[in-house]
Nucleic acid binder design. Structure first.
Length: 612
RNA sequence: GCCCCCGUAGCUCAAGUGGAUAGAGCAUCUGCCUUCUAAGCAGAGGGUUGCAGGUUCGAGUCCUGCCGGGGGUACCA
């Protein structure tokens, strides 16, 4: 039998009831249907419809009368209690508890927890992480990696086809700097010992020198211009020129530079893969800039042919958006730029995967680049695909400035994760001791299990702290805060999950029964009803997270859920419930809560543990 | 100079397409462990949403100007 899965997006279910009611009043009901939304305050009910006030002007009637009219036309069915009209014309809605109870059973029996697959499914390419291979990954790559991975998991769960593609910086100017540095300043021993660290040192060395020339050029006042001696400026200029030359030679397939590139790459990749393993991040494809190199000449020719690009000053080739807004696609020395390579990437992705959308999870500072890139791509003929810059703010230190080590360098990702896990271990072990002293029933765990908890908690804390932030704003990286372990943190969720699982262990209850053949849910207390409602809002929350690609919608849903669950946990004894039916109902609520927490954390790329 | 983003409680952040008394956590204060893990729960105080106008039944949200912070602005990516 073919069963059409009914949506458990509660807002949408209620909106579907309002649509016919509103259709009798206005030509286009959609904007007004959309005004049905969750209440901010539970005393106003579960949902509210705010359309009556807006309709007042167009219909020339008093809002409260319109509200009255809408309610009269509304087919409540077995879904809603009789609505109340309040204030200027709010329609307050309350779902029938019996309806919630039935939905809960359906949800429990579904391995997707009632979340309907997207219709129609789309194909997304997600471009995230994109480290420069020349140096160890650092804190700057964290947000892109974490946010991109979470979005990939979310979209995939919703039934979309997702292609993750790591656009490695393995071919640009920074590689020219390394080549120049390696050829002139490499410490052979250091390179043998730890190739990536040595390459990183060389990169930083050359960049610092070259940047000095640039900075000095841009300095306006005589005072800062004198920071470099004439000789110093000359050296800086030479280094910058030499690096550019090495880049151009690499691009022109110079045998020696290609050989060095092939020598460096495996080491770099291994280093990067290590970070991804620790973060539980995987990519379907890793097509770095080098992959696109052979295509770049053709891209520029095509751009010229189609009059997207034009010759600029000094033999460069440019795309002109406005008088002052110009992007370079080929430099005067013949080297191509990231705009060229990004355009080649778009063409390749369109050919290979035919996506409906390409998402770029990249730092907000590249907003102008992407605006230009997308405009150029549309002009070049790719006007059917949705190109979106999923931008995010900087990671700041506690002082509010971009995060740095004490020495002023970038914080390396590996060291950062080490510290997170070590701090997590300290906090966890201390708390276990405290609980023991207090007489709590804390499980005895093996060292291996404790190690797993430390990792789950430490890495989870880093990820959750990042994802729970609105991605658009900068965020302050603070170990103490993310590992404080109360409030809206990964640990709170992981702990809520573990405590929940311990109920089933303690009662020797097999969860399978609550999934294969769920018992009826009894929602007579406010705590039980509130928990049921919150559980059923899962699909709505995931939909919201998808709309604007905001993983923080998932964390704020989780936070609401776990607070509601805490209220329930505090007030509703489960194993010692008054009747077997009530015990079953509460076990059902517990199991569903655990499954939802686990699913949501999984969509965020955060592990759960069964005991902690 | 021009363009973009951001200013919300002492601190870090929420607030759905404009909705009801702007919410959380931390910190401060008051209660709660002979009942399923107190990394918890219940409660209190704390706000001219940077400033000044405007739009309307209603503005943290939209518009204008100003102040403050950040970023970008053709040969880095």
């Amino acid at each position: 039998m073919f069963l059409l899965r009914t949506s458990m997006n509660l807002a949408r279910v209620i909106q579907d009831r309002f649509r016919p009611a509103l259709a009798g009043l206005v030509a286009d009901p959609e904007p007004y249907v959309a005004m049905v939304k969750p209440t901010q305050d539970a005393k106003h009910g579960d949902y509210q419809a705010n359309c009556a006030m807006s309709l007042s002007k167009t219909l020339g009637k008093k809002p409260r009368d319109i509200a009255q009219d809408i309610v009269a036309r509304l087919d409540r069915g077995d879904l809603l209690e009789p609505p109340e009209i309040a204030g200027p014309g709010f329609i307050n809605l309350r779902l029938q508890s019996s309806w919630l109870a039935r939905q809960l059973q359906t949800m429990a029996a579904d391995d997707r927890l009632g979340v309907a697959p997207a219709q129609p499914p789309k194909t997304f390419v997600i471009d995230f992480s994109s480290p420069n291979v020349a140096k160890p990954m650092h804190v700057g790559h964290l947000r892109s990696t974490i946010i991109g991975d979470a979005l990939a998991r979310l979209l995939r769960f919703l039934g979309h086809t997702v292609v993750t593609d790591n656009h490695l910086g393995d071919w640009g100017t920074q590689f020219g700097m390394i080549l120049f540095g390696y050829k002139n300043f490499v410490h052979d021993n250091a390179f043998v010992q730890d190739p990536v660290r040595e390459l990183s040192r060389l990169y930083v060395l050359v960049r610092e020198i070259s940047k000095a020339a640039e900075d000095d050029d841009e300095a306006n006042d005589a005072e800062s211009r004198t920071t470099l001696t004439a000789e110093g400026r000359q050296i800086a200029q030479l280094a910058a020129d030499a690096s550019r030359k090495e880049t151009a030679k690499l691009h022109a397939a110079d045998p020696e530079n290609v050989r060095l590139w092939q020598l460096f790459m495996p080491h770099c990749m291994e280093e990067i893969e290590r970070s991804y393993r620790r973060l539980d991040v995987k990519f379907d494809h890793t097509h770095g800039e080098s992959f696109y190199n052979p295509m770049l000449r053709g891209v520029v020719e095509s751009l010229l042919e189609q009059k997207v690009a034009e010759p600029g000053d000094d033999g460069a080739i440019i795309i002109r958006f406005t008088d002052k807004n110009v992007a370079l696609v080929q430099k005067r020395d013949g080297a191509f730029t990231y705009t060229t390579s990004d355009l080649a990437t778009i063409r390749h992705r369109m050919d290979a995967w035919h996506p409906d959308a390409i998402l770029y999870v990249v730092d907000f500072r590249q907003a102008l680049h992407f605006k230009n890139l997308f405009a150029a791509a549309r002009c070049w003929g790719f006007d059917q695909v949705a190109l979106e810059h999923i931008s995010f703010g900087s990671v700041l230190g506690k002082d509010g400035k971009p995060i740095k080590t004490r020495e002023g360098g970038a914080v390396e990702l590996g060291a950062l994760l080490d510290e997170a896990i070590e701090r997590a271990a300290q906090v966890y072990d201390a708390n276990v001791q405290e609980s023991r002293d207090r007489g709590d029933d804390v499980p005895d765990l093996s060292d291996a299990e404790r190690r797993q908890i430390h990792e789950a908690v430490g890495v989870g804390a880093v990820k959750y702290a990042d994802l729970s932030q609105n991605r658009a704003s900068n965020y302050v990286f603070d170990f103490d805060k993310m590992l404080a372990m109360n409030g809206n943190t990964a640990t709170y969720m992981q702990y809520a999950y573990a405590r929940n699982r311990s109920i089933f262990r303690k009662g020797n209850v097999d969860v399978a029964r609550f999934r294969a053949n769920p018992p009826p849910a009894l929602l007579d207390t406010p705590h039980e009803r509130a928990l049921a409602l919150q559980l059923l809002r899962l699909e709505e929350a995931l939909a919201r997270a998808t709309e604007e690609y905001h993983p923080s919608e998932i964390t704020s849903y989780l936070w609401d859920l776990s607070k509601t669950y805490s209220g329930f946990f505090q007030n509703c004894p489960v194993l010692k419930a008054e009747t077997p039916a009530l015990r079953d109902s509460r076990l059902l609520l517990c199991d569903l809560t655990a499954r939802v927490i686990r699913l949501c954390l999984d969509l965020l790329g955060i592990r759960t543990v069964e005991r902690m």
